[in-house]
Structure formats: C-alpha cells, structure tokens
C-alpha cells in the first residue's frame, strides 16, 4: 500500500523544520574548518571559502543581519561584513555554522553535491560578470554573485525532505525532457522557489536576494527594483544549464524562455559566450582552492 500524498501544510512544516537546522555542503566544509582554524587567516581567504558554500554564505549573512547585532542596514555582502564586524567575528560565525552538519547521503544519489556546487558557483560567477558588463558598481556586484550562488537552495530542501517524490520529479524531467520547475509543480504543487523563499525569510536575506531564490524561473513576478538581479540570475541559470556546467537537475531549456531572458537583461548570447573563458577560469580556481574533485564525484 502506498502512502497518501502529503497535504501542502504538512509539507511546509517539514520544510520549515529542515531549514531551521540546514547543514552546509560537504564539498566545502573541510576547507572552511581548515581556513577558519588558522590563526593567520587572510580576509581574502576567509571571504572566498565562505562564498564558495551557498548554505554557509546564507547562514553567515543571516547571523550578521540578525537581531543579535542590531545593525540597522541589511548587509548583503561578505566583504562588508568582514570589514564591519572584523575577521574574528566572521570566522567564528562560519566555524560555528560549518560544524553543524553537512548535506550528503540522501541527496547525493539524486543530485550529486559536487555537480550542484559547480552549478551554483557558475550561476554566481556568470551573474557577477553580467553585472560588470552592465556597469553595475563594485559594491553591488557581490550581491549578484550571492544571488546566483544561493538561487537553487530550495532544491536541497525539497530533496532532503521528500527524497522519494523528488526521484519521481527527476524521472519526469528525463522522460518528458521538460523543465524541472514544472515537474516539481506537478508533484508537489509548488516548485523550489517556494522553499527558497522560506530559506531567505528564515535567514533574513534582503528583498532582492529573497526574490531571486523565489522567482528565478519567473522574473516578471519580482518587484520592479529587484528585477535586475532576478533577471540576471535567471539568465545565468539558463546559460549554465545549456553549457552543462555542473548540474542542478534541469538540463532541458526552453528556447522561447531563453530569448525572453536575454531581452530582459538586454544582453546578447554572443556577449554571454565571450564570458565563458573567464567563468570557467573562476570555477577552476575555486575548485583548486577547495581541492574538490573535478570529476564530480558524489559528496
């Protein structure tokens, strides 16, 4: 006898419980502990090692923005957090978060964590490069990286909360050669944007990053002043999927949606492709930094 499908309310309770103690990605944890435990950690290394882990980045920003410090302006950049609160504080925040636990086992069969990590980094780097191309000032570019890095975290939650049903989602994508978010909707009644929004709210990320996690498959739903970021990440995500850089379970892209995404950002496909070398280079540097296997083995 199969179990009755869960009601939405029950699903959201399970998701919320998972988010409350969401673990880091196993890909980066060893390196985080290594860097943070060194007495002579440089600001550059600290920033880099945190920013290579989507969960850790979100958690550190959450703590920096939490009522604990009472800082009146939301901080959406690790660079800013490190200057304002100091290396020691941020190092300790990262350490205390990283040692919680790691995402692994269950999720690794469906979505190998190294591939997911590579996908996330690629979307972050691509979005940041787009921001540069569009003349966005330095101080705002890190937000594009962070939005890209974190955009798919909702998937980690869905997989870890509903492992068997997510298997069905992946099969449906494969059989129908369709979009992942639509398959998620048909199985759960919502896609990974919804748990993405719940994570962003729990972590108190600012409105534009929150909407990126929620609406990167429907950028038109984002508020007007968040649309630059959401649209850039949406396009960076399609680009990364088309070029098959890592994987987040969504290999089939719709040509019509791609054209719309290019128009929205007002950028040409050729301009995107010109960035490719730079993007690959940044991913490779990150991999060397973490000494992660480039073969994409499971976590």
């Amino acid at each position: 006898m199969t179990e009755a499908p869960l009601e939405s309310d029950q699903r959201f309770i399970r998701i919320q419980n998972y988010i409350d103690r969401m673990p880091s990605l196993s890909t980066t944890v060893t390196k985080v502990l290594d860097i943070c435990n060194r007495p002579d950690t440089s600001a550059n290394d600290l920033n880099r090692v945190i920013s290579l882990d989507p969960v850790l980045t979100g958690q550190v920003l959450r703590l920096v923005n939490s009522a604990y410090y009472g800082l009146p302006n939301q901080i959406s950049s690790l660079t800013r957090a490190i200057i304002m609160l100091g290396l020691n504080t941020v190092k300790n925040l990262a350490l205390s978060t990283a040692i919680l636990n790691t995402v692994g086992n269950e999720s690794s069969q469906i979505l190998p964590m190294d591939l997911f990590w590579t996908h996330s980094i690629s979307v972050g780097v691509t979005a940041k490069n787009m921001a540069e191309l569009k003349g966005i000032p330095f101080a705002q570019r890190e937000e594009f990286f962070i939005g890209g890095l974190l955009h798919d975290l909702g998937k980690i939650v869905l997989i870890n909360c509903f492992i068997e049903e997510y298997d069905a989602v992946i099969n449906q994508v494969r059989n129908e050669q369709g979009a992942l978010d639509l398959a998620e909707k048909s199985v759960f009644g919502f896609d990974h944007g919804e748990p993405g929004r719940m994570i962003a709210e729990k972590w108190k990320l600012n409105s534009s990053v929150t909407e990126t996690l929620c609406f990167h498959h429907q950028p038109d739903k984002a508020e007007e002043n968040n649309r630059d970021l959401v649209s850039a990440v949406s396009l960076a995500n399609m680009y990364t999927n088309i070029l098959d850089i890592g994987s987040a379970g969504d290999p089939y892209q719709n040509e019509y949606l791609l054209t719309a995404a290019l128009d929205r950002v007002d950028i040409s496909w050729e301009q995107l492709v010109e960035m490719d070398e730079k993007i690959q280079d940044e991913i490779e540097k990150a991999q060397v930094f973490l000494q992660v296997s480039r073969e994409g083995g499971t976590a």
Partner: peptide, 13 residues
C-alpha cells in the same frame, strides 16, 4: 589571492 571586487568594496566600506 587578489580580487578586484573585494579590494574595491573593502576600501569603500
């Protein structure tokens, strides 16, 4: 380890 973005934002902040 130089990163232009970090260097510029660090100076600004």
């Amino acid at each position: 380890s130089f990163d232009e973005g970090m260097a510029e934002e660090g100076k600004l902040v």
